[in-house]
């Protein structure tokens, strides 16, 4: 069982706080992201089965687990790329896909979705850069069209971010003129240009040649050191997870099998499944 198994209702539109003081206290400890009884099915196949998981502000959580266990699905639901079949996802104290209207909980309209989604950024396994735009344009497009920044402001922001990921000299390159590692770093800059509070990384290095993995991980390290972003990453890089994450969660059968700080998670796992998984993974490397 996880420590997050019995969620208390956060201070949100869905459940009204009993009084203001109560709310103030809850807000202090309120997680950045909370999955509450989330269920996701593909046809008859239940992929996420009543997931309860809370991620604190600024926390760096690494999700690990066997292939097909639903890790990607968790991130995609949080990014609103998949619908939930049951449960609630809370982001920054607000339900992501529902709103309270006339005392009833109803599916959120697109305005609400867009407002909450604005707090989340995602980096994909296959980069998904816009191939018809330069690195710079990739990072400027959404800040201009979505946030309404001026071209100047957007460009300043994009140039800074590209410098941060070490690609200042590649800003006029198109994606197909960049290596996989460079593309992935542009993708990180593109997500950061929207100033998200939560960043999702889905196996961002698994499509890369081994020698390019390091440069992308270094960017993520730097991000972790310089920003107080909340990060949720799916990874198969156990070494990186151990060194970088505040907490590791093993996913199995649509639920969290076990989670804990890296120190105890790797050296002293409680569950037999975790032990098996770690043995299998570490043997492979």
């Amino acid at each position: 069982m996880t420590p997050n198994a019995q969620p208390t209702a956060p201070c949100t539109p869905v459940s009204k706080p009993r009084d203001a003081a109560d709310c103030a206290v809850t807000a202090m400890v309120e997680p950045m992201v909370r999955f509450q009884g989330v269920v996701k099915r593909f046809g008859a196949h239940t992929v996420i089965d009543g997931l309860d998981l809370a991620i604190a502000r600024g926390e760096k959580l690494a999700l690990i687990g066997p292939s097909g266990s639903g890790k990607t699905t968790v991130l995609r639901m949080l990014m609103t790329l998949e619908r939930l079949d049951a449960g609630v996802i809370w982001v920054d104290g607000e339900p992501l896909t529902q709103v309270q209207r006339h005392g009833k909980t109803v599916p959120a309209d697109s305005a609400h979705l867009r407002r909450v989604r604005g707090k989340i950024g995602m980096v994909f396994q296959q980069f998904n850069l816009f191939p018809h735009m330069t690195a710079l344009k990739n990072c400027m497009e959404a800040p201009i069209t979505v946030l309404g920044l001026s071209r100047r402001e957007a460009e300043e922001r994009a140039v800074d971010l590209l410098a941060m990921v070490g690609l200042a000299d590649k800003k006029h390159h198109y994606p197909n003129q960049l290596s996989g590692g460079q593309q992935q770093r542009v993708a990180i800059a593109r997500a950061l240009a929207m100033r998200p509070k939560v960043m999702l990384f889905d196996e961002v290095t698994s499509a890369l040649d081994p020698e390019l993995v390091g440069e992308v991980l270094n960017v993520i390290r730097k991000l972790g050191a310089e920003h107080d972003l909340t990060m949720l990453m799916v990874t198969h890089q156990m070494g990186f997870a151990k060194e970088f994450a505040d907490r590791i969660a093993l996913f199995h059968g649509g639920k969290i099998e076990e989670d804990g700080p890296p120190a105890t998670f790797f050296t002293n796992p409680r569950s037999e499944r975790t032990r098996q998984f770690l043995r299998a993974v570490l043997e492979g490397t």
């Binding site: 990014m79 609103t80 790329l81 697109s110 867009r114 989604r117 604005g118 989340i120 950024g121 995602m122 994909f124 296959q126 998904n128 850069l129 816009f130 191939p131 018809h132 497009e141 959404a142 069209t145 979505v146 993708a187 593109r190 997500a191 240009a193 929207m194």
Partner: peptide, 26 residues
Amino acid sequence: PSGQWEASTAVNMTRTQALRRIILPQ
């Protein structure tokens, strides 16, 4: 590729914006 739609959603574009700026040019 559907990844282009997904990346557009991830940077919070509307469907119309994604269609006009990302999908149609490709």
